[in-house]
Design a protein around this nucleic acid. Sequence first.
DNA 1: TATAAAATCCTGTTTTTAGGGGATTGTTTT
DNA 2: AAAACAATCCCCTAAAAACAGGATTTTATA
Lengths: 212, 212
Amino acid sequence: MVIKVFIVDDHYMVIEGIRSLLQNEKSIEWMGHAMNAASCMAFLQQQQPDVILMDINLPDMSGIDLCKEVKMKYPSIHIIGLSSFNQQSFIQKMLDNGASGYLLKNATREELVYAIETVIEGEIFLSDEVELTVQKNEDSKIPIITRREMEVLLLIADGLTNNEIAIKLFISTTTVDTHRKNLLAKFEVKNTASLIRMAAQIQLIPYIKPKN
Amino acid sequence: MVIKVFIVDDHYMVIEGIRSLLQNEKSIEWMGHAMNAASCMAFLQQQQPDVILMDINLPDMSGIDLCKEVKMKYPSIHIIGLSSFNQQSFIQKMLDNGASGYLLKNATREELVYAIETVIEGEIFLSDEVELTVQKNEDSKIPIITRREMEVLLLIADGLTNNEIAIKLFISTTTVDTHRKNLLAKFEVKNTASLIRMAAQIQLIPYIKPKN
DNA sequence: TATAAAATCCTGTTTTTAGGGGATTGTTTT
DNA sequence: AAAACAATCCCCTAAAAACAGGATTTTATA
């Protein structure tokens, strides 16, 4: 049985690299690629692969969210997260959202093929290095914040004060203050500067600054 | 005349992708790859390519430094910086260190080939999107801050208060406050959150957080 | 050597955040 | 059904940052 593989990545060179690596694998069928979340979803309406290799950074949506959406509509598709970085927080989120594995972009052909074969069996695959990190970082800080906290965080990053945020979210200023306190506690920092820095570094804050 | 190309990148998939993209180009000869700065330098002792495609992120040394080193010893080699991100600060540093071009990893085969051909002619090549960024940022706000303001900015990002910064720099708290005010003015923001966000986004703040 | 720019310091006031306590109402999850 | 979590709200105090308006000295640079 041939495993049908599809890839979602906005880097042409990575797509080409994976295609090239899988070219001579007789057990794997290359279904094509998408360079963003929207065209991925469009493709899936026509055909369903067995495995999707999915970059965590996409131009229109994070791979983490796309993963969730795909698994919601097509639970039988196995998703392998793909990224350059060995970041536990992303890996965890991908897995939480239904991904079956996580592969670093410096993986070899053998790893790639093995990953695909593993997730098809219903098992979880993680890159060697990733597993190490997961272990190492287990005890360290990967703040898990709630949806509301995330909203507040983004508005803080946009430069709004507690009062302005309260008005925008139709809640009391004291509530905003509580969310803010919880954010500081979860990130284990003592002020806004460190909070925003950390959040920016773990890519919680979108790069393009929305006006006002 | 055949252009000899070598690549330095720690992502196997990217190496493979570029190799695959250049495979059928008769005017280009693939010399091989290195996955870190050390083996790149070792390779160059044996053979010299005409063009090196060099990732800015390498495990043992930044591409920016490696670029400088290579150009020092082998001035005739043309270097094209390679990265996933469209970050003006890196691009500028690569060019300052002697690189002849900058290519994003989502470049097409045509762009890649054109880039190689362009730098061989002694010209500078920049990805379309990169040029846009350079242009866009030209007239827009790239705040020019002084050395002292930079020091203060980094300490703010580290979570220090004005008072703590004052102690660390052996200056008065009011001076720190003045620097801070100037930073806010130069960045055209009204609070620390926005300041740190912007600074992080234009890569003014180092990624690895130094302890304390 | 003017002149500009950078770095230093000051006195105020107002606004915002941080830190310490709570508490209530829903909604998941076990 | 109980426990845990999320979201909401409150009080109070202290610390920090933002805003306004200065000034002096040192260091580049035209």
